[in-house]
């Protein structure tokens, strides 16, 4: 450890260059990962905040929640097998406040601890609507509904398909969309029952039924994967170049009896030190960046995702450095002795 650190200190410029490159790439990766997570949350926090469980939709709806209809008979069947089941409907729409229109996603549910309880004629809105001039107690209208909806309360970060959610009572929802059914059933837990004519979805599978969710996430995740691969290659190239310069030293150290594994260990320690410092800085700075990001830009970098990214960086750095280090095992002491040296 001491020898590895000594080398970094002695040749600080060369390791500073590698550290800076790794820091910049990891900062970019963390930032893009934060944006991907933020977008994902912005797209589907309604679903993402739910505990793990199973969603049910009508089989013939072909993965489109707005085409699914669970009639009373089906709902009773589900209730019999899973009394704690929650039924919900989701529909895009808009609310008017004076002359101003607000695009929202109406969500109506049966009584459940997972969603806020709303009385008929009331609406509970995602708090971002407050910035559009809507306040508690305001009366909002909708062209499909004769009665007004009074803003009862606001909730934090409840979005679906990048739109704010408006929780309304099922009676109001059924009046607006002329339906007497719910679209989706949700049962919490791992051991959930199966039903004929209904398709089951895990939380993750259900997210993919949201239009654009999959394409959006795939694009961003591909960028993250590319950046990880590039950082691995950078580690490989950098340590290859450093190892080429040090082949003479390695040869002499092997001649005097140093184990090849000790030389690899030295290289791995250097890789871990550089990656660790770069990651600490990039995580810290990516968090600081959120203070300067424009309001409304979705960014979410949790400790969990930052830790996973950091482990991936360390893993890829390890592979890159190890591949480049195969030269060490090939070094013949005799060649080093025959060359000049310090």
């Amino acid at each position: 450890m001491k020898v590895a650190w000594k080398e970094i200190v002695k040749f600080k410029t060369r390791y500073l260059i590698l550290g800076t490159i790794i820091f910049l790439i990891s900062l970019l990766t963390m930032t893009i990962s934060g944006l991907a997570n933020g977008l994902s949350y912005d797209n589907a926090s309604l679903i993402k905040d739910l505990p793990e469980g199973t969603f049910y939709m009508q089989e013939k709806s072909e993965d489109q929640y707005n085409l699914s209809h669970l009639d009373e008979k089906k709902m009773n069947k589900i209730r019999e097998a899973a009394p704690e089941a929650t039924f919900l409907s989701i529909q895009m729409g808009e609310l008017e406040n004076g002359n101003k229109n607000h695009s929202v996603v109406f969500v109506s549910t049966t009584n459940s601890s997972l969603f806020p309880k709303v009385e008929e004629g009331e609406v509970i809105l995602n708090n971002s609507i407050m910035a559009e001039g809507v306040n508690q107690g305001d009366d909002l209208t909708n062209s499909l509904l004769d009665n007004k909806l009074t803003v009862e309360d606001f909730v934090d970060q409840q979005k679906f398909s990048h739109s704010s959610i408006a929780f309304i009572n099922s009676t109001d929802f059924q009046k607006m969309y002329r339906t007497d059914t719910f679209q989706i059933a949700f049962v919490e837990g791992d051991d959930t029952p199966k039903f004929d004519g209904l398709t089951q979805y895990s939380n993750k599978d259900f997210l993919n039924t949201i239009p654009s969710y999959n394409a959006e996430q795939l694009s961003l995740n591909m960028i993250v994967i590319f950046l990880l691969v590039i950082s691995g290659m950078l580690f490989g190239i950098f340590f290859y170049m450093i190892n080429v310069q040090k082949l003479g030293t390695y040869g002499i150290l092997k001649a005097v009896g140093m184990k090849t594994s000790a030389l690899f260990k030295m290289m791995w320690i250097q890789m871990i030190i550089i990656t660790f410092i770069s990651l600490i800085l990039s995580i810290g700075i990516s968090q600081l960046l959120t203070l300067f990001m424009p309001e409304g830009m979705p960014f979410l970098l949790t400790i969990e995702s930052a830790s996973i990214m950091s482990l991936l960086f360390l893993g890829i750095g390890f592979i890159g450095a190890t591949l480049s280090g195969f030269q060490i095992s090939k070094v013949e002491p005799i060649q080093a002795i025959n060359q000049g040296g310090v």
Partner: peptide, 15 residues
């Protein structure tokens, strides 16, 4: 059990 002295000192530069 062995010790080596070469034509060049071959010392480790950073130690």
């Amino acid at each position: 059990r062995f010790g080596f002295v070469f034509q060049h000192a071959h010392l480790v530069q950073f130690l």
